[in-house]
Simulated assay, not measured.
Amino acid sequence: MLHNAEEEANLWFAANAKGREMEGHSDEMSKRKRWIPPETGVLKFNMHANWRYAQLQSGMAWIAQDYRGDVKHHARDVFICSPSRLVAEF
């Protein structure tokens, strides 16, 4: 369990370091319209949340794809009593 925690921490730090390197390219990235595959051996996760004010419900869906665009995992669910869009997104 300790080894897994250490590995997860290292991956988290590596991912955040890449994010800081990419901050200057945010304008370029926002102009891209197509899906960009991850590196070989890495899964790319896309998530979306939806919130309905009248019912105070929210839903979330996610999908994980490999470098070829093949779907490896996906799920969706509905949650109740979400007081705001921010809570639904969180």
Rank of each mutant, 00 (worst) to 15 (best):
M1E: 04
M1A: 08
M1H: 06
L2F: 06
N4W: 05
N4E: 14
A5E: 07
A5I: 10
E6K: 10
E7I: 02
E8C: 06
E8K: 11
A9G: 01
N10T: 13
N10H: 15
N10Y: 11
N10A: 15
L11E: 14
W12H: 13
F13R: 15
A17K: 13
A17Q: 12
A17N: 11
K18Q: 12
K18S: 12
K18A: 15
E21M: 14
E21D: 15
M22E: 12
G24S: 13
G24I: 08
D27M: 11
D27P: 04
M29R: 07
S30G: 06
K31I: 03
R32K: 12
R34G: 10
R34T: 14
I36S: 07
P37A: 06
P37S: 05
P38D: 04
P38E: 05
P38L: 08
P38R: 10
E39F: 11
L43N: 04
L43P: 04
L43G: 04
N46L: 08
M47W: 09
H48A: 15
A49D: 07
N50R: 14
W51V: 01
W51D: 01
R52E: 11
A54P: 03
Q55H: 08
Q55T: 15
Q55E: 10
L56G: 00
L56M: 11
Q57H: 13
Q57Y: 09
Q57W: 10
S58Q: 03
S58P: 01
G59M: 04
W62I: 01
W62D: 00
W62Q: 00
W62S: 01
I63R: 03
Q65N: 08
D66N: 15
D66S: 07
Y67D: 12
R68V: 05
G69P: 01
D70T: 08
K72I: 15
H73I: 09
H73C: 06
A75N: 13
A75P: 00
D77I: 10
V78E: 07
V78H: 11
V78N: 11
F79V: 02
I80V: 10
I80P: 03
C81Y: 08
S82V: 00
S82N: 10
P83L: 03
S84Y: 01
S84K: 03
S84C: 03
S84A: 07
R85T: 04
R85F: 03
V87Q: 02
E89H: 00
E89K: 02
F90H: 07
